[in-house]
Design a protein around this nucleic acid. Structure first.
Lengths: 194, 194
DNA sequence: GAATAAATGAAATGCATGTTCCATTTATTA
DNA sequence: TAATAAATGGAACATGCATTTCATTTATTC
């Protein structure tokens, strides 16, 4: 009666929620894994009902898992912006982004028609950080100004994702991508002939 | 042996097969269309069973439909190789390829884990044609030789697809892509500074 | 026009998946 | 330990889909 609000949430529920989250995250790093509730529950050693209930639905679970994966990526982008020049930040971040996406292909593949608010917000943060890199690089003269910054950002994001998607992952391809993209993004002072 | 005298195939079956093929093809050009047998059958004014039976399965139907769409694209690549310089062929073809893919997104989206032999073969033809363009362009000095030709081809194919996938389709993005990619693919005689 | 076999499509089946139910188990508090 | 309510998970349910069945329709042949 006088108990302090009585613990409404049981400890095992909290722990199981975490287990489900960990299982989902782990599956996203496994190539070819099918992110079904069943598979996640099996990996977490829980019943499917428990997994679903802990988040109120499969989508919310995936949203939480993807967000957790994406957070350090966004933080890294911000850190790079603070630590080094925009030009260098752009190159370093793109390389790391491709590696991350290649290691978590499910993050970008099987999440097609889902409603993932937290993930969407983080993606927006990421886009904003890349836009800052591009803005800075333009000011530094290493990125051409004859292409709209937003278009440039979209171009980078879409193509980086595509390169990361290729299976099996190829470091050669990633390297070639960075070389070609960054060269192509350089300003053309003159020289436009075929 | 190929066509025995006794008409083993009824005329309506042949016609309906064509209707199903047309319906599937049409749906592939409709953004957001969900290529279910049900939807294809409805569009063709046929029963779902008829559609499936005409091809022996949904996969075979999609394979036939995609192949029919892809054939003129492959032919166009070959024609360009015969008609003009590899450098010009590459640019023209890439522009057209993006437009085609953008207009038939379903061709590249919803066909993830399917077995489509004819489509796979045509894709290989297409890759071969692009490889020829790149080989030729290298000889012409418009494409860098410090990146493996196969890697270059993969890079082009994957990124072009990614650009085409963006919705809504953006001509600005497609133009930016072609500009950046082709510039980035140019040989770097010198000039390697940050 | 009758006979025959091929073709059709609405309904049934099978399968994979997400979600909900509810009898049982378990954490929590006193 | 007893009392209570929260949490669990196997089973049932719901949904969306491709495929198969089979009574009926239709093209084809004579």
């Amino acid at each position: 009666m006088s108990t302090p609000a009585g613990s409404r949430r049981r400890a095992d529920a909290v722990r199981n929620r975490q287990l489900a989250l960990d299982a989902a995250t782990a599956l996203m790093a496994e190539p070819g894994a099918s992110l079904t509730v069943e598979a996640i529950a099996r990996k977490a050693d829980l019943g499917a009902a428990t997994v679903v209930r802990a988040f109120g639905g499969k989508d919310a679970l995936l949203d939480a898992a993807v967000s957790r994966l994406l957070e350090p990526v966004v933080r890294r982008a911000r850190d790079l912006l603070a630590e080094t020049t925009p030009t260098r930040a752009l190159r370093v971040f793109l390389r790391e982004l491709i590696a991350f996406q290649a290691a978590h292909h499910a993050v970008n593949d099987q999440l097609g028609g889902l409603e993932l608010p937290a993930t969407t917000a983080l993606r927006a943060d990421l886009v904003r950080a890349v836009e800052e890199m591009i803005d800075g690089a333009r000011r530094e003269g290493t990125v051409r100004t004859d292409i709209d910054p937003v278009v440039t950002t979209t171009l980078i994001g879409q193509t980086a994702l595509a390169v990361a998607r290729t299976r099996p992952p190829s470091q050669d391809l990633a390297d070639a991508y960075l070389t070609v993209l960054l060269d192509g993004l350089r300003p053309r002072s003159e020289r436009t002939g075929d």
